[in-house]
Amino acid sequence: MSKDVLVEIKNLKVHFPTGDSGLFGRSKQVVKAVDGLDFTIRKGETLGIVGESGCGKSTTGRAMLRLIEPTEGEVLFEGRDIMNLRKGDLRGLRREMQFIFQDPYASLDPRKNVASIIGEAFKAHEKMSAKERNERVQELLGLVGLRPEHVKRYPHEFSGGQRQRIGIARALALKPKFVVCDEPVSALDVSIQAQVVNLMKELQQKLELTYLFISHDLRVVKHISNRVGVMYLGAMVEIADKQDLYAAPRHPYTRALLSAIPSPNPEIRRERILLQGDVPSPVNPPSGCRFRTRCPEATERCAIEIPALKDVGDGHMVACHYR
């Protein structure tokens, strides 16, 4: 493994059994939310993951921190496989790997004030006097652009953007190396979204953080990421340097996805590739290439053979037989 790799994912699978278990508990069906992912995240970079609802992007982020137990595969953090860690060791590791959630309304305990929301991490992980703890909380509030007097307030007293700042402060409390951000700005208005995105970029530079940035918003992902991966129905279909991916997408799905972004400039009319139909069910994904049922270029081969994710030059990886 090369030195600058922080996280490496190998053949990650997350399967959920569904409630439909047949009349006598036979024929148990499985939702293949994530079905065999391989990728790496380098130190100090932001890897963006995009895809539509149900593609498995959030499940991937959660499985990497073992907030959901993966069914199969390896997650190597600085070379250590975290899948084999016991609960106690995992707890120690969570200092270094943190999570920022989408919904700033649901992810903060309404009965706790800011001091205890952010300070909780110190209680759990570090021996610290109340005074020290208070100082650290103040410091973190300053870092995310909130004021010292906010420390005594409760979540309902804040706006959505401010709550997300609290969520960020909580995630950064223990000085993690790696942060999974799951749709961190999707619930915010555009003007507030820009403030929070800028804050996250600043903090990354200041604290040398590595981000996995999960979002359905292709514009925000392009802005914040260094590399971007595109998921479809539990699999990675393309992953590349962001300039490369947005300027010259190779996979037919990526092309359609990028062409569907509504442009805020009415003068620019890109040619739009309209996909037919909907995403198939992950219980019973199509054979071969998962995208073939909606792909304008699909052939017989696509129904038989699963395309591997392969390098087509300069680390641009595509899973398509015809690229």
């Binding site: 003007s191 800028n198 970029k201 514009r219 392009k222 947005y246």
Partner: peptide, 17 residues
């Protein structure tokens, strides 16, 4: 408002807010 939307055809370090 228009400036706070990231432009996919342009590269900037920070968004205007």
């Amino acid at each position: 408002l228009l400036k706070s939307i990231p432009d996919i055809s342009e590269e900037v370090e920070f968004l205007e807010t």
